[in-house]
Simulated assay, not measured.
Amino acid sequence: MSSTEMRYVHAVTQALRDSMEKDPAVVLLGEDIAHAGGSFKATRGLLEAFGEGRVIDTPISEAGITSAAVGMALTGLKPVVEIMFMDFITLSMDALVNQAAKAHYMFGGQGSVPMVLRTPHGGGLSAGPQHSQCLEAWLAHIPGLKVVCPSNPQDVYSLLRASIEDPDPVMFIEHKSLYARKGVVDTAQTARIGEASIARAGRDVTLITYGATVNVCMQAADKLAAQGVEVEVVDLRSIQPWDKATVLESLSRTHRAVVVHEAVQAFGVGAEIVATIADEGFDELDAPVLRVAAPFMPAPFSSSLEEGYTVTVERVIEAVGKTLA
């Protein structure tokens, strides 16, 4: 298999399949991932291919699943955990924050935790406040955890392969609304955690984003191009570590920036990026750096309220207009 068109969710499946074929230490565990193929069918067909010893249905206990994965990783396996919704990661935090993230440091570099935790985040499906959250800023705040958030099928495939091969714990965050998105995937193409990509080149303003809002920013850039505004879109791809060099290089060309993410704006990923630009790229700025993100409130159930809560093309265009004014 080389290049073929596939959906985002099928790129996840293919990355898992190829990793398991390459390395017998890779095992999958999570709720309903084996016989049911996972809540979003990302593990469909893998039980039949690799058996119950490597594709493991677990009890409904996120704390137990993640703790087991940490133990597996410390003793030679490479577990890939699926947490059904990112909202449920709250139940996994002790194992992630106090064990997985700290083991390499506390053992003086003599041990590592090569585990991946896959989980979908985000709204847009009227799933309400307990099934729509974007909590990646929590994880990015913890030394020892890597946090990846791909926006397209190719990056899902390449970055999941890289995450499984990484010796450190990686939080691999997918977006529910992207699972059906199609794109060409080249299985020979590799990616490195911590490297951003320029999704669109431009000269007037830089949009810095990741995950599902990359597509929102690309749509905004298309509309702004019709008005003569050339927008550069930086897809971070991973937010811990994040590619500061690419962001500052883009800023040196455009001299204006807007940070866009679906998560709540307060104390979010965007705040860290804006602070870094203020520290290290201030002389390049011709206008204040703006943020477009969710308001400080739980995600609403109502579809009409959720439309006002989520990041839209119009909100991005408005922010670009302000920074160009």
Rank of each mutant, 00 (worst) to 15 (best):
L91T: 10
A100C: 13
P169N: 05
V116N: 02
A201G: 06
A226P: 00
A100I: 12
M106G: 09
I142M: 06
M115F: 11
T213G: 01
H104K: 14
R181G: 02
L96S: 06
D155Q: 01
A180Y: 08
S112Q: 13
H104Y: 13
G194Y: 12
Q133W: 14
D186Y: 06
A140F: 04
S151F: 11
P169A: 05
E232V: 02
E195Q: 15
Y105R: 09
G228M: 09
T119H: 10
C217R: 12
E136L: 14
L224R: 05
A127K: 01
I208H: 06
N215S: 13
A180I: 10
A221E: 12
T190N: 03
I89K: 00
G124E: 07
T187N: 03
D222P: 00
H175S: 12
S126F: 00
Y105Q: 10
G123T: 07
E165C: 01
S158W: 09
A95S: 15
G211S: 14
V185G: 10
D204L: 02
G183M: 05
F107K: 06
G108N: 10
G123M: 10
V113K: 02
G128I: 06
M171E: 00
R200Q: 11
D204W: 06
A220P: 09
D186W: 04
H121L: 07
I89F: 13
Q110A: 11
E195A: 10
G183T: 00
G144Y: 06
P150K: 06
I173F: 15
G128L: 05
K102W: 15
M218I: 13
A95Q: 15
